[in-house]
Write a protein that binds this DNA or RNA. Structure first.
Lengths: 203, 203
DNA sequence: CGCAAATATGCGCGCCCCGCAACTTCTCCG
DNA sequence: CGGAGAAGTTGCGGGGCGCGCATATTTGCG
């Protein structure tokens, strides 16, 4: 069912989200009006709100989509694989650095990075970002429950695993933004997940 | 420095937060206007925004305060105590059920509980709640760094520990609201923390 | 008691989010 | 292939909200 309609809708959604991100990184969250985003996506302001309930939602939309794919990736792993091995692979698969994407041609890498930091420092964005993480965790918990034969309603286990994975991703992201790209993301992710799977003993 | 000024300010803040919570539980988030909260606290609407930047912030304020106390409690534990023992105690200390508090005299326990659920289901609230958790985690990470002699900027370890604890608290809360008070909170918390400290092995 | 600082309040602006009612574009089936 | 109907877009308008600014009031202190 990928008619013209669906494709156009997806395109508009992506254009809006991308415009929201780009403009916010360039000018700052407060300085970007919904009208600007709509215009950048060649759409009426009213239409913006048909796709997203807020500026923050639009900006976070990409992160949300990517995070939700982790659960799908986990289901695709062979079922005889140990849980934490499968989780590690599923996460790496989604958070691998995408070649070429993620920067506007007009902006210098340095300016982009600092704009990104400023954007992620925005309180309104942080809340939305964490909410996106929570949504993704619900998906992931379901996948974990399937794989381990636990009950989503009665057992805390799948929720704990999902929350721990979310915590790892979040911590790695923050660390990466704080310390800069000295160490590649996949190494950091592997380290974080390994520590958690080891019970976080005092080093 | 606890002059009349400070005490009055704290009282107003508490009154506003409490009014926000009570009214939201009774009527629902959308149905409560800032004006109502201000009136319930005998304060002008403009003053509300001198204390809180949004309705959500006011509602979450109590949860935030409580969560931040965990770090303080951890510092107060004897330093020869094993890390996870100390953390368990510090968390339990803050999230122990408070006798008598937490309900308006006018409302039935059942109505209050269902109102609470509805309130916590509100997207805007969830974001703010998670943000509060993130703030508390920063405090907690600092306390963990002190205790374990790790570096907040260079090591992910203290952040991972704090995030894991936050995840545990969050999961327990959700489970408690989902399954009802069949099992006491302190048992659930103990179980969640124990599982994390054990590395979340598949059960 | 009286002044300086902190706080509370009133006013007004700009923006955001959404419901509603046309209007346009796509889909699907006879 | 053509027209009915579904789905998407847009303009309009309103209710609230968050906040800057100026003013009035209260508190702390000498």
């Amino acid at each position: 069912m990928s008619g013209l309609r669906e494709r156009k809708k997806a395109a508009t959604r992506a254009a809006l989200s991308w415009a929201a991100i780009r403009l916010t990184v360039e000018r700052g969250f407060e300085a970007v009006k919904v009208e600007d985003i709509a215009e950048a996506a060649s759409v009426s302001p009213r239409t913006f709100n048909n796709y997203f309930a807020s500026k923050a939602e639009a900006i976070v939309s990409r992160h949300l989509d990517r995070s939700r794919r982790v659960a799908r990736a986990l289901r695709a792993r062979p079922s005889q694989e140990p849980l934490w091995t499968a989780i590690g692979a599923a996460v790496q698969e989604q958070f691998a650095p995408e070649p070429g994407v993620g920067r506007s041609p007009e902006t210098s890498p340095a300016g982009w990075a600092s704009g990104l930091r400023a954007m992620l420092a925005e309180p309104a964005l942080q809340g939305e970002l964490l909410r996106a993480g929570a949504v993704a965790q619900a998906d992931l918990a379901a996948a974990v429950a399937e794989r381990t034969g636990t009950d989503l309603d009665r057992d805390m286990y799948p929720h704990l695993v999902a929350a721990a994975v979310g915590a790892a991703v979040s911590v790695v992201t923050q660390h990466f933004l704080r310390a800069g790209p000295g160490v590649p993301v996949d190494r950091l992710l592997a380290e974080a997940l390994a520590r958690i799977a080891a019970g976080l003993p005092t080093p």
